[in-house]
Design a protein around this nucleic acid. Structure first.
Lengths: 166, 166
DNA sequence: GTTAGTTACATGCGAATGCATATAATCGGC
DNA sequence: GCCGATTATATGCATTCGCATGTAACTAAC
């Protein structure tokens, strides 16, 4: 009942097999994420930042316009109060600047300070090198491009999904 | 300086391009992980378990022999003390059994209780269905198989890596 | 313009986490 | 069999997190 290695000779691919395929892929992906995250966390490149700190700094570094908390929240895997306080700490440390949004008094405009940008660049260079080393040692160029392509498809919101049976 | 969209017409692929390729792939993969984890977390299938709780129960469910903490630690993204206390809570809740290892008095043998196994199966069915729904809506069978294959390569430890220039 | 509903963010608080370290058992020479 | 090194797990403590909720501002219908 638990293990059923019988090959279902269905016409295309049985729904059972497709579910299994998806779950196996997800489990493997989780394993890869865990293995790589562990490796990167142990890297000695973080200069006192947690990986979440860096995630916020990196996200801000990619945006020229100041971001709101809720914008950051879409990219960072953290609850809204958690992100609120994480940003608090980054502001306190002088890495992130917070100024009022003239068009919306509720919102805050967040951006990197000069120090924050410098730190992000410094850490980013080292971390990026480590990422490249780990990934290029395991995947070919074609596989890297494929991974990016698959990942982008997986990131699609429910809205713009390629329909199957409309 | 920040954006250099100039195509490097190198013979194969410049080292710069390869680094970039790897970092883009990793960023996309992180995005997919965040998007899917958020979705799965919000699913109403967890029956009072955190996803980490479930991760431990699932890992134990796959093993017939009792596991040690350090075995679990390889699969769960958590520090050793963190895992120790997470297991404490699961034992307290009657989902995991802890008994002494006769061959090693330091180690503990961890296994699912009947209740823990039942809960893992119940939650696992619902969660597995959600995983399948999300992934099969975004990837074809071939892509799912590819994702699993790429993920397995990414999970390889430094030891058994396919050598490049020995 | 008043008010209900929504959005953006912050805060109180208990629970979970990581780091450093402690404890206890096993292993490997000798 | 003894002792240093290593392994397996636990605990103290400060930090961080998520949930529930609060506060303030915006929006829209009337």
């Amino acid at each position: 009942m638990t293990t059923a290695p019988v090959a279902p000779a269905a016409t295309h691919a049985s729904s059972r097999g497709r579910t299994r395929l998806a779950n196996d892929a997800w489990e493997a992906a989780l394993g890869a994420h865990t293995a790589l995250m562990r490796r990167f966390t142990e890297d000695d490149v973080w200069a006192g930042l947690s990986m979440r700190d860096y995630d916020v700094l990196y996200t801000l570094s990619k945006c020229d316009a100041p971001q709101r908390l809720s914008d950051l929240g879409r990219h960072v895997m953290l609850s809204q109060p958690g992100l609120s306080r994480l940003v608090d700490r980054l502001v306190e440390r002088g890495l992130v600047g917070r100024c009022a949004d003239p068009t919306d008094a509720r919102a805050a405009h967040l951006s990197l300070t000069a120090e924050g940008r410098a730190l992000q660049r410094r850490v980013g260079r080292a971390h990026g090198a480590s990422v490249a080393a780990a990934l290029t040692a395991r995947l070919t160029d074609e596989e890297l491009a494929l991974l990016e392509s698959l990942s982008r498809k997986l990131s699609l919101p429910d809205d713009d999904l390629p329909e199957e049976t409309p």
